[in-house]
Amino acid sequence: MAMMDRRRALGALAACAFGPVAARVSAQPGGERFPSRPVTLWVPWPAGGATDLTLRLLAELAGRQLGQKVLIENRAGAGGTLAMPVLQQAAPDGYTIAQMPQPVFRLPHLQKVLWDPIRDTTPILQVSGVTFGIVVPAASPLRSLEDLFTWARARPGELTVATNGAGTTPHMVMDELFERRGLSYLHIPYKGTAEQMLAVSSGQVMVGVNSNGFAPFVDSARLRLLVTFGEHRTRRWPQVPTLKELGQGIVATSPYGLAGPRGMAPAVVKVLHDAFHVAMQDPAHLAELARYDQELAYLGSEDYGHAMRESFAAERRAVERLGLARPATGG
């Protein structure tokens, strides 16, 4: 009998250690166990792009931990900031969460918005960052970053450059590179990576700047990758230099994470954090990130909140440095 009790106890401990997170959560105030229904994850990018695909897999894996589905809702446009109004208006019950891309920390410094990425959110965890780069059609005579500057200098305002939206990291980086040299280009914003890369690879646009949803186009030799924006060269394209090593003094990886509405209960935040933390380390998710030359950049809830505040302040400084800050309004 004692042996049977011992086995039951060991079995219960094993279930706690390895079972779904939902099996270990305490009930919410009012007695309802969280989650008792599906959670919605808002992705502020079009379906089918690199970020959308990696988050869809992450959501599926996290749902297994939660014991409830995590449903993806796409809300593309406005440079990746359209999930912020959703969070601002949602109940802080844990059933509405969203990806927090870098533009949400930048846009309030560029134009008036009704939301605040710090005030109106509850940090859950940081997941990863992205590899950005500059690409041109495979047949383009532009073979280096310096070639872009030379061409733009000879034909002011004629170089066409596509990004994933006004105010996004690719747009800001290109503005800074060209502003330093007193050069101009014609900016063409796109909502989705796939649409943008098709336009560049077909020659409709001369240059594309985006996250590494361009990978299939580069690997199939439809696009040529001129430079990447990370701290170091990528493992996938080790022959391609970084902006930093070319002496540009720019490193941009746009770390992103997940957050919920302001005022979420700590116990609910912990349930979501734990589920996504387990999910993000799943080999399937790691392999999906690797397809786009991404790696984990995990931060827990408290550290991610600190990083969010730092990003908000850094983006304000960057916008002011480029002379793009919106005018202050009087009370």
Rank of each mutant, 00 (worst) to 15 (best):
G247M: 07
K191H: 13
Q248H: 10
R119D: 08
P189D: 14
V251C: 00
P92D: 00
V271M: 08
S36R: 00
Q28M: 12
E302S: 10
V104M: 05
A50T: 09
G30D: 01
H232C: 02
D175A: 04
L289M: 13
S220L: 09
R233W: 09
W115Q: 03
A279F: 08
D303S: 09
P85L: 03
P327F: 09
D120A: 04
T234R: 07
W115G: 02
Q28F: 02
L58M: 03
G63K: 00
A14H: 15
F312W: 03
R24S: 13
T81H: 01
T329L: 10
V113T: 06
A221G: 11
G203T: 05
P44G: 10
L53H: 12
I250R: 08
S36N: 07
Y190C: 07
A215M: 13
A328R: 07
F214L: 06
G305A: 01
G67K: 09
R56P: 11
Q248P: 00
G300M: 05
Y95E: 01
T163N: 13
T81N: 02
F18Q: 12
G31H: 04
E295A: 14
T329E: 11
L186E: 09
S184G: 12
T150H: 07
R236K: 13
M308S: 05
S201F: 05
L299P: 01
L223H: 05
S211P: 00
V207T: 11
G213L: 06
R33C: 04
T96D: 03
S140K: 04
W45K: 11
F105T: 00
A215Y: 10
A83Q: 09
L41K: 07
L289Q: 08
V113E: 03
V104D: 01
P170M: 11
R7G: 10
A252R: 06
L55V: 07
D120V: 03
G94P: 03
V173W: 00
P38A: 07
E302A: 14
T193Y: 06
P46R: 08
L243W: 05
Q239P: 00
P38G: 05
L272S: 05
T54W: 08
R56L: 12
A287H: 15
L198A: 14
G63C: 04
V130A: 12
I250P: 06
V43I: 14
N164Q: 13
F18W: 15
T121D: 02
P283G: 13
G165M: 11
V268A: 03
G133S: 04
S36W: 02
V161G: 11
T169S: 12
L125K: 03
R155M: 06
V127K: 01
W151T: 09
A284R: 15
T40E: 14
F217G: 02
R155T: 07
A328E: 09
I124S: 04
Q248E: 15
Q196R: 09
A22I: 11
A139G: 02
F132W: 10
P137E: 02
